[in-house]
Design a protein around this nucleic acid. Structure first.
Lengths: 196, 196
DNA sequence: CATCTTATGTAGCATTGCTAGATTTACTAA
DNA sequence: TTAGTAAATCTAGCAATGCTACATAAGATG
């Protein structure tokens, strides 16, 4: 059997189709999740949306969990990019302020996406080598922030991340009133901005 | 129909039985959750554990959600008490440090309980009048901390809570390595301790 | 004892995640 | 073109879940 040109093009087209369908699934999952919550993202519902039978979804991602995980990875990738942008185009002097604003904006504009990013059960820390690169990338944006500041940049970065995550999560789940959000962020920025 | 003494005693016994069974259900739910995760806390499993049929559970709490909510309330009550204790018996000078340690100790020693406390979907902020008293009580322990400090005690308290919650959550879900936990807490305490 | 109320159980529905096996479609080679 | 093979896709179904209508048993009351 010889690999003709046609064979190659066919294989490529198949790959494209596959990736397109994969993207369709993830897109549908995100849309439903944002509009109706993750509990309404069922495999049957997704298979309806993309007009394929259920087993097709299981061929792409091994399980429902797998679909959520893929969405979560997308989320980390996008968040990493958003943070990178915020870090590079610093507006009014303070990088910490810019990053904090970008982080919380991301969380508030895609609550379901943010939710799944952190409900994804991980077995490995953010800064570990065995961690998906998208997560490492996002975290590295925060690490960068405190580089050279004090003795332990990782500790400060983690603390900053934790504070942002806490604010995001307690806001998303309605524990915090939106009314004081600006003041909260101002206080946060003040705490994490050091002279020098 | 007259209410005899016997009638009263019978009614009281029934009430006791009911409360005992309620406690049994919640206790079983907590045990299973801590050992096997909340997904293994099914209504059938619980009804097996207490040797009653499913409808009995639905008579007590209207739904599975209702059972989790009741556990979450218990959790807030217990956390409030733990924080109160930590605030009153301040060991080495620093109240902030004592509270932070108590909070994280609570979260780490009952991860499933902590998890359900914050996955419970609320519609009302912590400091609202319409919030279950157990939640208000727990939050009030943190409010107390920064009373008189600066201009906005609520803002500082919320920020402190957010930081603690972020650390707890990112630790519980394995995002943070345990190894740096002590340093993280030290840095946190330093940030939130003000001269005076 | 008879009756009525309350407590409890039985059995079943609809929905879910997931999968084995049939079936159709797409490609290959004579 | 066509028979045969491999890949893609679907049909149908299982077991488990949350929940509930209805039947039955237990308990209290006259």
């Amino acid at each position: 059997m010889v690999k003709t040109l046609a064979t190659n093009r066919i294989a490529e087209r198949k790959l494209r189709d596959k990736q397109a369908r994969r993207a369709q699934i993830l897109s549908a999952a995100r849309r439903i999740a944002e509009l109706e919550g993750w509990s309404n993202v069922t495999v049957r519902r997704l298979s309806d949306e993309i007009s394929y039978s259920q087993p097709v979804l299981y061929a792409h991602f091994g399980s429902r969990e797998g679909i959520l995980a893929a969405v979560a990875i997308e989320g980390f990738q996008e968040m990493g990019l958003a943070l990178e942008k915020a870090r590079k185009r610093v507006k009014r002097g303070n990088t910490v302020e810019s990053i904090a604003a970008a982080y919380l904006e991301f969380a508030v504009s895609s609550p379901a996406l943010y939710e799944v990013m952190f409900s994804l059960s991980l077995s490995v820390p953010f800064d570990d080598a065995a961690t998906p690169p998208e997560l490492r990338f996002a975290f590295s944006q925060l690490l960068e922030l405190f580089q050279g500041q004090g003795s332990k940049p990782e500790v400060l970065s983690e603390l900053f991340w934790a504070s942002l995550h806490g604010i995001a999560e307690l806001t998303r789940t309605k524990r915090f009133p939106r009314s004081r959000q600006k003041e909260r962020v101002r206080a946060l920025v003040e705490l994490f901005t050091f002279p020098g």
